[in-house]
Simulated scan of single mutants.
Amino acid sequence: MKAFYYILAVQFLFVVSAYSQDFDFFYFVQQWPGSYCDTEKSCCYPSTGKPEADFGIHGLWPNYNDGSYPSSCDPSSQFDQSQTSSLLKRMRTEWPTLACPSGDGLKFWSHEWEKHGTCSALGQHDYFQTALDLKNQANLLQSLTSAGIEPNGNSYTLESIKDAIKQSVGFTPFVECNDDTSGNSQLYQIYLCVDNSASNLIECPTFPHGKCGSQIEFPSF
């Protein structure tokens, strides 16, 4: 009987270990609010007011090296606001919602946790804390403005944007664009990669699909 329970315990530990490593890396994604809002769909400011003119967190997403990703790994694990209460002030500032209708962020954070966070092998508090700390580590706006790339409606080359971030952060970003109301390509989201322990930035094993125009607008907000 003891041998039977020992085998069960070993199997359980194997399953937990396999789950915790069941992805290869994270995408850490930040978005520029001016580009989110300057589209035909437009945006709504959070019920707490207009966010700062800074990149905001979109998410921390587990991914596989082949470009696919796990999703909604534990339907029983719902977002619990009480587990992130100590982070709420930072989340409102650094992880704001811009979706319509205007909200307080809870719907956005719930979606990110339930779709991506449940696959991360992190608890809720650690998941959001990790993303917030990564944002501080990779200060994208400072990286760009230090290189003379300002959010003032001017256009810049894709390579100059990537080079500015790599020089500052140390790793190659993926730049995602969207189109403004006039159809011009604009700087929308920046992807950086993190190892599967969520400890260190790394070079991305693979990049998402998509491309930007030769000249990219950096709109004001």
Rank of each mutant, 00 (worst) to 15 (best):
K115H: 04
A99G: 09
N63P: 05
P101Y: 09
P96Y: 05
D133G: 03
P101G: 09
L87F: 04
Y69V: 05
G56A: 05
N63D: 01
M91E: 12
Q142A: 11
A99L: 13
Q78S: 15
Y64I: 02
F79K: 00
T145V: 12
D74C: 03
T130N: 06
C37Q: 07
E150G: 01
L88R: 14
I57H: 05
P51H: 00
F128L: 11
Y127L: 06
G105A: 13
S76W: 12
N139S: 07
P33E: 04
D74T: 08
A138L: 04
E150W: 08
Q30M: 14
N65Y: 03
H58S: 09
Q31I: 09
E94M: 15
C100G: 03
S86M: 09
S146F: 02
R92N: 13
S35C: 08
M91Q: 05
S146N: 15
W109Y: 06
W95L: 08
S102A: 14
C119T: 02
C100I: 07
K89S: 15
S86V: 14
D38W: 07
L134C: 12
S146Q: 13
L106A: 11
E40N: 10
K135S: 13
A147N: 14
C44R: 00
Q31Y: 14
S82Q: 11
P70F: 05
P70A: 00
N63I: 07
S82Y: 06
L141E: 13
N63T: 12
S72E: 09
A147W: 03
G148Q: 09
P75N: 03
A138Q: 03
A99Y: 12
S110D: 08
Y45E: 14
S102E: 11
G117L: 07
L88F: 02
S77Q: 13
N63A: 11
A138T: 05
K41N: 13
Y69T: 12
E94T: 08
F79Q: 00
W61E: 10
N139D: 15
Q81K: 13
P75L: 02
D126R: 11
E94Y: 15
H111A: 06
N154T: 01
H58W: 10
T48H: 14
Q81W: 04
E40Y: 12
Q30T: 12
S42W: 02
C119Y: 01
S85N: 15
D133L: 14
G153F: 06
Q78N: 15
D133N: 14
P33T: 11
H58P: 03
E112W: 00
